[in-house]
Amino acid sequence: MHRKKTLQGVFWILVYLLLTLAPLAIILAGPRPEGRELWREFSVALGFVGLAMMALQFVLTARFKTIKSPYGADVVYYFHRQISLVTFALILAHPLLLFIFAPQTLRLLNIFTAPWRARAGVTALVALAVLIAISIWRKQIKLEYNRWRVWHGLLAIAAVTLAMMHILLVGHYMNTPLKQALWLGYGLFWVFLLLYVRLIKPFLLQRKPYEVVKTVQERGDSWTLVLKPIGHPGMSFMPGQFAWLTAWASPFSDQEHPFSFSSSAACTEQLSFTIKERGDFTRKIKEMSPGQRVYLDGPFGAFSVDRHPHANQYVFIAGGIGISPMMSMLRTLADRQDQRPLTLIYGNRDWESVTFREEIEAFQSRLNLKVVHVLENPPEGWKGESGLITYELLERYVPSERNRNDCEIFICGPKPMMDAVETALSRLGVYMGDYHSERFDLV
């Protein structure tokens, strides 16, 4: 299983590299255009691979399950964010090298006098810069999530289209009909991707709707949204995975929000998500009425006990609503009558806001489960753990005798907690491949 995933992972890296370098191979194939100075050709090459990477960003976010499965959706999203900076650096290096080695090209920056090929190139670069800036500082500039998604999509399409126009207008590397055909193919591939993401996929999602069964209030300002499939068998998922939810809108509107399943994977006729009231969308979950139609795209993610079936024991470390994917795993393990040793270390502000408190207590009779509640503000007379989930606390509860792949640890909660726990586990000598994090702040 591990070996297969690794091979798949390597395969997709090679495909990525191949597609990134494809433009250079196309240029070198057959009769080449007249060669120019080394720095100029290097600058052009960086521009070409930058454009290919920019176009490939659409593949990364198109949620193709086969690409995501060897890594998990979170790694693909981190990669999407990090590679965008590399892409920007490469594309920026393209004009910078020109300006350094041929300062007269600086006049191309004047949009009033510059030829159209330069206008298209400069505008593409500006679109990309704005796109990256609003993505990095979305929260600081208080750009609402859905509005950001719209701008993100529009700027991305603008940047790639303008960059393609730039190449066509320069036309230096279009010297044979074969190369023109290859470029056309590259462009069509990209247009197909756009059509798939914006039209085909939403169309398929619309044909598999879900209906709200009920919403249930939980402790800790959270609501459980229970859904059932309409006219189809529902969705099979691994416990701990997540799906993108569209509500009060059509799948074509691109207004989706990712949430972890909290229900057991053993039951696909009814799915549930437990959601904390945090933003505009999550605050409206409680207003959903039975019978309301919603859409789900999923499942995604690698955060699951099912990815590590050979472990002898599992440890779950949750903070607040980070319990949601853990509940899915605990419920599933209980339904499967799994009797492997489990530990749940669960941090909350106070006793009253411990989401699923009662159900977790009840699990102790069905599962071989040890629960460690950690409260920031414990009630009077509290005998359990208090404060935050620290290195010292983890040292007490994380099994010290372990071999690789023997004890798998799952972490989900607020970012500071997760960072602290990951650092502590690393200090405790836990092998990196044995702990897994689910971060809700991907976008």
């Binding site: 240029i27 070198l28 090459a45 691979v49 981190y78 590679i83």
Partner: peptide, 30 residues
């Protein structure tokens, strides 16, 4: 930890593409 996988992937791919771009430039330049 998973963030680190993606960071290393990004660095790896960034370095490889710059190297290949340079090789391209050497092959293509006069």
């Amino acid at each position: 930890m998973r963030q680190r996988i993606s960071t290393w992937l990004t660095i790896l791919i960034g370095v490889i593409t710059v190297i290949f771009s340079f090789i391209f430039a050497v092959l293509q330049s006069r």
